[in-house]
């Protein structure tokens, strides 16, 4: 077996990157095969590597998971227990906007490139007749920059991953107001493995299923921000992809 490349969704916060290096080391020891962790600066760069079939294991954004499963034959083997991708739409604390329906149709939104957050947030704006065509997006590199654009009054709203919003400093959050938070629960990042590693699926599932029983495994999970892995069946992922499909068209 060649040394597979493992990568993670570019929307994983910088505070969790060290955790993924620790997980990579732990997984190599348990599995008995070398793995190379490679990080990509953008979704675009990562998708290019996926198209070149360079990726063996990926902790993917649910939006990309659909492409990986349906087009590239990847199989989802696990997801973090109790973690789902929820979005927060926030305004400046002094904004006159009290609910989604108060927003103008030509709403200006500060957004990152995270496709799941942007899709969920766009859906939350639909009751105000704001469509992907009328929405004016201002792209930001990070959620901190999204917050800054909202605070500076350069946009009407900011789209945040709920976890990232909750992780903003108290000072920043005190100047923002949460307009709406999604409660979808069924959309989440998943760990996927490429079809060439098909013979290893069950081995990898067993290793992850036992991770929280191992002291070093528990430490590694803590550093990822998880309590445990939930082992997935193929239909669990197919269901999430079907659900995503209903949201993107």
């Amino acid at each position: 077996m060649m040394r597979p490349v493992m990568t993670i969704s570019p929307d994983i916060g910088p505070d969790r990157i060290a955790g993924w290096y620790i997980f990579n080391t732990w997984l190599q020891k348990q599995w008995g095969h070398p793995i190379r962790l490679e990080l990509f600066p953008s979704f675009q760069k990562q998708r290019e590597a996926i198209q070149r079939d360079e990726i063996g294991i990926i902790y993917a954004n649910p939006f990309d998971a659909a492409m990986l499963v349906r087009e590239k034959g990847f199989k989802a083997i696990a997801a973090a227990v109790g973690k789902s991708d929820e979005a927060v739409i926030a305004v400046n604390v002094d904004s006159s906007v009290k609910c989604i329906e108060d927003l103008p149709i030509t709403c200006r939104a500060a957004v990152t490139e995270a496709p799941d957050v942007n899709t969920i947030s766009s859906i939350l704006l639909e009751p105000a007749d704001i469509t992907r065509q009328t929405l004016q997006s201002v792209i930001a590199d990070t959620y901190v920059v999204v917050a800054k654009l909202v605070l500076q009054g350069k946009v009407d709203v900011g789209f945040f991953l709920a976890e990232a919003y909750d992780g903003l400093s108290r000072v920043v959050r005190s100047q923002l107001r949460e307009l709406l938070r999604s409660q979808i629960y069924d959309i989440r990042h998943v760990l996927l493995v490429e079809p060439h590693l098909q013979a290893e699926y069950e081995t990898l599932k067993t290793i992850l299923a036992n991770m929280s029983s191992d002291a070093k495994g528990r430490d590694a999970l803590h550093n990822l921000g998880f309590t445990d892995w939930e082992i997935l069946q193929q239909e669990d992922t197919e269901f999430m992809i079907d659900l995503m499909d209903t949201l993107v068209t």
Binding site: P127, E238, D242, D245, T246
Partner: peptide
Amino acid sequence: YATVIPNIRDGSIIGYTSVRRKPSRA
């Protein structure tokens, strides 16, 4: 506002998923 999608597995429809979201009042 409802979206209904066929669940296609191995080329065959095995069921349907329906997702409803908050509609525009207009």
